[in-house]
Design a protein around this nucleic acid. Structure first.
Length: 468
RNA sequence: CCGCAGGUGGCAGAACGGUUGAUGCAACAGACUGUAAAUCUGUGCCAAGUAGGUUCGACUCCUACCCUGCGGA
């Protein structure tokens, strides 16, 4: 019996209902990310008032601190954090990337700039040593460079040549390493070493009492070469099957009613690979399918900068894979959550989303605004087609309007841009809460509006209104 | 009034007499997509109290004055 039901379709876009052990979810749905048992700056009440139906928790972080066994003893993650709605837990697969390949390759999940291909094969050969990433090292490097430049001409030349030779060879220290058995992590907290196997990941997620569990996968980088990608995907397949076996063996025994298990469709920005992966995952009998992997471009995969456009990789990928996935399974776009990407993904039949963007952006001063409000604000946003403003900007210091005059969140009902800017530049803690309430509400509300539009067969119209 | 210490960007604060002039904060802008993120990346600063002197060369040494702090009368 399926937990998921599509109740309406408008083109490729779907509206549905997903049953979980902590209640029903209306899809499409956005899931705020609560990595360490907390959606940063927000209480469960704040989350509910911001229209959150379900949140995400993280295996890797909660395993390291406070520990899955402790959370189990405390009655599970829901009780521990005071959230009675559904929780989806990530498997820890993303950290293999963010603590490994992302550092080594200097890339992000959604790579916006064209990266010069270096044909990376294996990764993270150099675990150990200083716990510093390249971005964290930049400051000292800059300092050295400046000092060198200020010395005598010849001396400076010699020195800078030396550093030019040394610099590319510089070891990048990563915190994760992939082995066939699982992911070896060196804790970013205390340096201790941990092996996360597919079984271990499921065990942790069961201990947490998650409603929706994900299989362990390895997130690929656009700079992994074809040989490595092939090998990695075979390994991820093995991990997913092992995850599923372990899940079937223990989930019903340990928890009643049982949580559900989503498999992960991995890959890079390549049609053939994504289609093959879609066919494979469709056959495995999962309760849902999370679509992850890299949405970046590189020469290795034949992408040239001319063809590249923002969000194109995401849209293309979903366009390729969704026709090959079972209609009756929920589809989850892992880590997707920017406004344009939500429209682009839902259009191709994606039902669920999670993203750190609303909460991280909020804390960093980037607040969402709707198209109408962009016109109010200033022609800058309107022209740039962005959906955010940087509240730190001076032009908001006397702005009496709410962040988004069309928004009905608690923050917009009660506070001005001028006040929020003041809180932000003053580093007041309240800023984080008010800003996060707004951004989470904004995205949740947008997805809710999209759902209503699908039910009314108005999806295209709403999309045009936003993306024009 | 006397003694001591000291005056370096908007603020704080470094540097053998050698094209001087870091760094931090603040300011201004930008980034952020399964959270190593209240983070990161840029940008600019009319920067040596005043007036002289020594020196090839002074932020750096000398003199006077002005100002600030501390102690004393």
């Amino acid at each position: 019996m399926s937990n998921f039901k599509v109740i309406a379709k408008d083109g490729g876009a779907r509206a549905g209902v997903l049953k979980t052990t902590h209640g029903e979810i209306r899809t499409p749905v956005f899931m705020p990310v609560g990595t360490q048992g907390s959606v940063k700056a927000l209480s469960p009440d704040d989350l509910k008032n911001a229209k959150s139906q379900i949140i995400l928790g993280n295996t890797y972080h909660l395993y390291l601190r406070p520990g899955n066994k402790l959370i189990k003893k405390m009655g599970g993650l829901h009780k521990f954090m005071g959230w009675d709605g559904p929780i989806l837990t990530d498997s820890g697969g993303f950290q293999a990337f963010s603590l490994g390949a992302a550092i080594e390759h200097g890339v992000k999940k959604v790579q916006k700039l064209k990266v010069k291909s270096q044909n990376y094969n294996s990764l993270a050969n150099t675990m150990g040593g200083d716990m510093v990433s390249n971005s964290y090292q930049k400051k000292p490097e800059k300092r050295e460079k400046l000092r060198e430049n200020s010395k005598g001409e010849r001396e400076a030349l010699n020195k800078s040549q030396e550093s030019r030779v040394k610099s590319p060879e510089k070891t990048k220290h990563t915190f994760s390493k992939i082995t066939d058995d699982g992911i070896v992590f060196r804790s970013h907290l205390d340096g201790s070493s941990h092996l996360l196997t597919p079984q271990k990941s499921i065990e942790i997620q069961l201990d947490l009492g998650s409603d929706i569990i994900l299989t362990l996968d390895e997130l690929l980088s656009p700079l992994h070469n074809k040989t490595y990608v092939k090998k990695s995907l075979e390994r991820t397949h093995r991990w997913e099957i092992e995850s599923q076996k372990y899940f079937k063996k223990y989930s019903k025994k340990l928890l009643t009613p049982s949580p559900i298990l989503f498999g992960i469709l991995q890959g890079v920005y390549d049609k053939k690979i994504r289609e093959d992966e879609a066919k494979w995952i469709a056959e495995q009998g999962f309760d849902g399918i999370s679509i992850g992997g890299s949405f970046g471009t590189s020469e290795i995969w034949g992408h040239d900068s001319v063809n590249w456009a923002s969000g194109k990789a995401i849209n293309d990928t979903f366009e390729w894979v969704t026709p090959l996935l079972p209609e009756d399974l929920p589809r989850h776009g892992l880590g997707i959550g920017e406004v344009a990407n939500l429209f682009g993904s839902i259009e191709w039949g994606i039902d669920m989303f999670d993203c750190v963007s609303p909460t991280r952006r909020a804390r960093n001063g980037s607040l969402y605004v709707s198209p109408k409000s962009r016109i109010y604000s200033n022609t800058r946003e309107y022209q740039s087609k962005k959906f955010t403003i940087n509240i730190n900007q001076q032009r908001f210091s006397r702005d009496k309007k709410s962040i988004d005059p069309t928004c009905e969140c608690y923050t917009c009902q009660n506070f001005s841009r001028a006040y929020l800017r003041h809180l932000f530049v003053s580093s007041e803690i309240l800023y984080h809460r008010l800003a996060s309430i707004h951004n989470v509400y904004f995205i949740n509300n947008l997805v809710e509006k999209i759902r209503e539009a699908i039910l009314d067969k108005q999806f295209k119209k709403l999309k045009d209104k936003w993306l024009g």
